[in-house]
Design a protein around this nucleic acid. Sequence first.
DNA 1: CGCATAGGATGATTATCGTCATCCTATGGA
DNA 2: TCCATAGGATGACGATAATCATCCTATGCG
Lengths: 191, 191
Amino acid sequence: MRYRPEHKAEVHERIVKDASRRVRAEGLNGAAVAAVMRDTGLTHGGFYKHFGSKDELLLESLRDAFGEIADKLAEAAKRSRSEPGWKAIVKAYLSLEYCDQIERGCPLPALAPEMARAGKEMRGRVFAELVKYKDRMVPFMPGRRGSDRERAFFVIFSTMTGAVEIARMLPDRAAQEMVLSSAREFLLHSF
Amino acid sequence: MRYRPEHKAEVHERIVKDASRRVRAEGLNGAAVAAVMRDTGLTHGGFYKHFGSKDELLLESLRDAFGEIADKLAEAAKRSRSEPGWKAIVKAYLSLEYCDQIERGCPLPALAPEMARAGKEMRGRVFAELVKYKDRMVPFMPGRRGSDRERAFFVIFSTMTGAVEIARMLPDRAAQEMVLSSAREFLLHSF
DNA sequence: CGCATAGGATGATTATCGTCATCCTATGGA
DNA sequence: TCCATAGGATGACGATAATCATCCTATGCG
């Protein structure tokens, strides 16, 4: 072989990481094949040596994105010993810094409507990733029974998703902080 | 003149209405010039007799969309004499029927992330429409002072936006209804 | 009753994008 | 040291899209 055995896997992963950033920053079809490959330092032609189709890359990049913030939020929850995990998650999620980092943030406020509009095939696969995301967050959610925690997940992540989206539409940081802190206080005092 | 004096204004409005549906159903660039004109029964060529640019149509169609649901929600709020207006709004917004009708629904759960990614120019104009939407909803919101009602608007619409978006990602109606009703009960018992 | 005119149609241009066929080349194994 | 090979580069193709120049034609005014 021409390259080290790990070479292909490494490049593959770099493409996915770059696409995962680009897709969150610029939308589902902001991650054009040529642009992503350029990010990775390659040309567009080699793309199909790594992926069967653009949708395959899209799915992998969404999987990567969900995994990335699930890691981040789970770590924040585990680090906080003085308060319940879900409160640490809410505080991290509804912070200005987090709101700023679209390209490293949760795919929900970045892409939820576009994911809902995707073709049936893709939608099914994305749904599976959403379920994995939920399953990783549910243990930190408030509530006694599992079904309570699951409902809490949907309510809390609905509010956080909407708040971050709306904050991102606002032109100045004061207004953004107003929306984020309103949602934050609301959630923290409601469970 | 070739046509009745009102003709041009009527066609203009039909184009905007069609675009407003299409943009919500298929995303900001799902409303291709040719497609919208075909909806209206015309060909793509005449488009620039009505609009200076595609962005102009986009903005007008968003204005129309915000106005359309603002009307609908305000009417629901006014119709309900037995409970506060905001509760009627929450019940209407977080219903399955509403969730289904993407193309006639609120632009927020349909387009918020895409609007946040638009160019500076467009973002500023969209922001102005969002403010008008807010100003029409705030009078119905719970709270004593105006600033309380404004915060309530952002919290309630954040939760509703996120809940509808997440529901629209789910494959079956039972799961959708679970998300919508969780958010609904949560909001109705929290103010 | 005929014509000037504006709304609409046709079609070209330029750009972007996904996909793929083909070629190139550096390297690990012999 | 040499070559077979797979990763990467080049470039093309067909779609789709925004924009605009040009032409067409139905109609209301004179």
